[in-house]
């Protein structure tokens, strides 16, 4: 992320502690002279269309074939990890508070808002099974899934990697993530499972066997594990 040296956003200049700044014109500062789009957290942005996503997915497929899924997941992981550091800095600046001394759900909502503003979709976090060592994230309007349409298989590897990378940094424990339900499979929203590798492997196995997201949720909650 490029950091702009001059604070251009007039609303931020006036109200630096305004927390509800995620309206399109609040969050992004367009400078037609420089050709830049700087967001509230001084990250540089670019506008892309669905062609970009199609290009990325198909291009990778052409280059590395079946490894494209794993590649996108890895890209997502690195992104999530880097974003965790970026987030920590701007969160503490905005709220004058340490990230780890904050209400967790509030912290997470705040982390995701820039993504929503950027067009990655809205989310819902389900921390209900946190004590069991796993959690779920729902994504509505996944940019990747919406672009690719109904292709009969999950496609949001970038998101899965992003969550894995970010949450691993957040909880300082190695976490993996798998998409267990996808808009590109005809569902109305995407669902991700986050947890230790063993849980993710179990979910992957069950999915291969034809289990639905609901099946997987049930099995995890009743403690079914792969031996």
């Amino acid at each position: 992320m490029v950091i702009a040296t001059e604070l251009q956003n007039p609303i931020k200049r006036k109200y630096p502690k305004k927390h509800n700044h995620y309206g399109f014109r609040d969050f992004f500062q367009f400078d037609p002279d420089k050709g830049t789009i700087i967001d509230w957290n001084e990250g540089q942005n670019i506008l892309t269309t669905e062609d970009f996503i199609v290009g990325l997915v198909e291009g990778l497929q052409e280059e590395v074939g079946d490894a494209s899924a794993a590649t996108m997941y890895t890209i997502g992981c690195e992104w999530g990890q880097k974003d965790a550091f970026f987030f920590e800095k701007w969160f503490e600046k905005e709220f004058d508070r340490n990230m780890r001394q904050t209400n967790l759900l509030f912290l997470l909502e705040t982390w995701w808002w820039p993504f929503t503003a950027q067009g990655w979709g809205r989310w819902e976090v389900d921390m209900g099974d946190r004590k069991q060592g796993f959690m779920f994230v729902n994504i509505f309007d996944s940019a990747v899934a919406r672009t690719l349409g109904d292709v009969g298989k999950p496609v949001c590897y970038l998101y899965a990697g992003l969550f894995a990378g970010f949450f691993t940094e957040l909880v300082k424990k190695q976490l993996s993530c798998i998409e267990i339900q996808c808009y590109s499979m005809g569902e109305t929203y995407c669902k991700f499972l986050l947890g230790g590798q063993d849980r993710i492997d179990a979910a992957a196995f069950w999915m291969n066997e034809g289990a639905t997201a609901r099946d997987i949720e049930k099995r995890l909650r009743t403690g079914d594990m792969l031996r």
């Binding site: 509800n20 609040d26 759900l105």
Partner: peptide, 14 residues
Amino acid sequence: ERLLLWFQTIMRAF
């Protein structure tokens, strides 16, 4: 866009 949608997530968090 400028208040409700953001505030909804905050209210949900709390």
